[in-house]
Nucleic acid binder design. Structure first.
Lengths: 352, 352
DNA sequence: TCCAATCTTGCAAGCGCTTGCAAAACGCGA
DNA sequence: TCGCGTTTTGCAAGCGCTTGCAAGATTGGA
């Protein structure tokens, strides 16, 4: 079976596909469209630089063949791909799921694929993921937070890949920063509890040793407590993951140690749900005996009994805004890095 | 600046890196290790086929240079990558998050990267994702469920990429199938409610039109109801997504239409949580007036008041088992497709 | 009608790695 | 010490696409 280029008297639209991958290649498309592969490539990557007539021919050939470009070959030749490396500290945490879904939706229409990495709140794993992602020549890297290992910083600075840090707000961003201030969230929560007439308020945060953002919310909270001069800040120290069991347990321990506490800010609505169940179990009246406010505005907060006050972070907005920024940057050389504070919203409900 | 191969009298460990990417290449590693790129490549991909001494030299050179292979180049040459394309119907649904985390953890040590896709319960989007993933020459494709579009089937059959369908159990798997029977789950839930002395039981399922697995659980449930001949199956028709609000709303509507119902099986623990709040609000006693059982064994189910009965799917086990199967397959030519039923566990708690 | 300026298009040289093949090195028995 | 069967290693030809450069086509003004 040798290639037969001459004597092909059959239908001109029938092209013998190469065997190597079994899939149509750009050369097949080019042949059917009667142009060179360079033209096909340009029709795909820079549609504006081709005449409309050719583009139509090429599109038809692609359609006919069901051609799907080989990302590897394209990526190797261009040394960049339509891939966005996104690293979040947790998948199970639905804050980030919402961000990712919004981001993916925005990117999809432009043909960008998200590569998702889960750092599990570890800077070393983040660094490893960054390394691994960079070897895919991504169009951009999106990180959660502003804290990174030295190695990660070095790698990131050594590349000209755009970087977005999200879900935080602070100084000296690596490149673009899109998020909100967790310190401000903590302050708002404390002020809210005082405004509701509470006298002694506490903060319960999960994994404060690992989760920088939860720690920052705690800092803001403690700041306001100190400013009132009324009582010492009560913070429930580092514990395991943010789950319902830990929330219930932490509230129980907190009330045992500080019975005077009459208002609690939880670093995560899931913890607060545990707290709610604990109160239901113990007959603690919410908000009379104890006011509760959380963070995240998760699904259940609006529908529990009582409904739960919370602070809504711009979960989806962060994803959408990140994608928008990057897409603008991909299509236009001189979009500068930005710092975008998306703010947050305190939603007062029955629990406070 | 032309290449200078001769007259390099400087330190032999100093190698001028190529400029193109700014990163060290395999050729640099080879030069430092004093071997050919072929040897380096083999040391990386098939360590067993190299002598230990050379492997050590190569490792040292890699270490010294901080060499990270270019995945594109390798993928193009080998026409396959250490990438696993995984498609789930939803990210926010923490069932799948747990599966993915377990799978990723297993794959990580072997250097396989997961590419995650979110089909949003749409077969068209699944097909698009499959196409997009295949253009990355993945080592395997992992799908959720056994239902796929014609186009997707065609593409999948036209490739020799291993395919795992997960989270279901049935006939005619495409290749490997790892999951459990949702029909059996539905049957178990119904039998449990009857065993608790309930007389008229109902099923509340979200998105039954889209979520095949939730529909199958409903089928199994209805089957048992019919077998008892005691009453007609009550099924709360398709509604929106599985969230707390919909759970509360659906239970309210169900009880309005069928006040005789004294036991409910929810397709998802999140719906059940909404049901629980509804009961708390209405003063409906659980389980005396109404027994509740859900599916998923989510975090909160064990800690609510009352605690919630549920059926625990092998969330993490599916991920681990999938990774194990594929890793075995990657390292050994003749591992055949498998069908693995991981079963499930009914966890009876206070709500039933 | 002709020429210069502007668009379009094709040529061909890579992108950095893998791998079949064959040569070199090695091991061992005679 | 020699010869033969086994490793171990290097050579070099791609993998399928992108893109700088230059040639060809087109346009408009003189």
């Amino acid at each position: 079976m040798t290639d037969t280029t001459i004597g092909d008297s059959g239908s001109p639209s029938k092209v013998a596909l190469r065997r190597t991958t079994g899939r149509a290649q750009m050369a097949d498309v080019a042949q059917i469209a009667g142009v060179s592969t360079a033209t096909v490539s340009r029709a795909l990557r820079h549609p504006a630089s081709e005449s409309a007539a050719l583009r139509a021919q090429v599109d038809a050939a692609i359609e006919q063949l069901g051609y799907v470009p080989n990302v590897m070959a394209g990526g190797l030749a261009a040394s960049r791909t339509r891939t966005i490396g996104v690293i979040v500290p947790s998948l199970i945490n639905s804050f980030f799921s919402a961000t990712i879904e919004a981001m993916a939706a925005r990117f999809e229409s432009d043909g960008y694929q998200i590569m998702l990495g889960n750092s599990d709140y570890s800077l070393e794993r983040e660094e490893a993921l960054i390394n691994s992602f960079l070897s895919w020549s991504p169009a951009a890297i999106v990180l959660t937070g502003q804290t990174h290992s030295r190695g990660a910083l070095k790698r990131l600075l050594g590349t000209d890949t755009p970087v977005v840090e999200m879900w935080e707000m602070g100084d000296n961003p690596l490149d673009t920063l899109i998020g909100f201030s967790h310190r401000a969230v903590g302050r708002a929560a404390a002020q809210h509890l005082y405004a509701r007439g509470k006298q002694c308020i506490a903060y319960i945060g999960a994994a404060l040793d690992l989760d920088r953002r939860a720690a920052q919310r705690g800092d803001g909270f403690a700041e306001v407590v100190r400013e009132t001069n009324a009582h010492a800040p009560v913070v429930s120290g580092p514990m395991g993951r943010a789950n319902v069991a830990n929330g219930a347990r932490a509230l129980e321990a907190l009330l045992a140690a500080h019975p005077e506490v009459d208002g609690v800010f939880f670093s995560n609505d899931v913890l607060m749900l545990g707290g709610l169940f604990h109160c239901q179990r113990q007959g603690i009246r919410i908000p009379q005996d104890l006011a509760l406010i959380g963070f995240g505005d998760l699904d259940f907060a609006a529908h529990s009994l009582p409904s739960l006050s919370t602070i809504r972070p711009p979960k989806a907005e962060i994803g959408a805004s990140t994608a928008d920024h990057l897409l603008r940057r991909f299509s236009n050389e001189d979009v500068p890095p930005e710092t975008i504070d998306l703010g947050f919203e305190l939603i007062a409900r029955g629990s406070s």
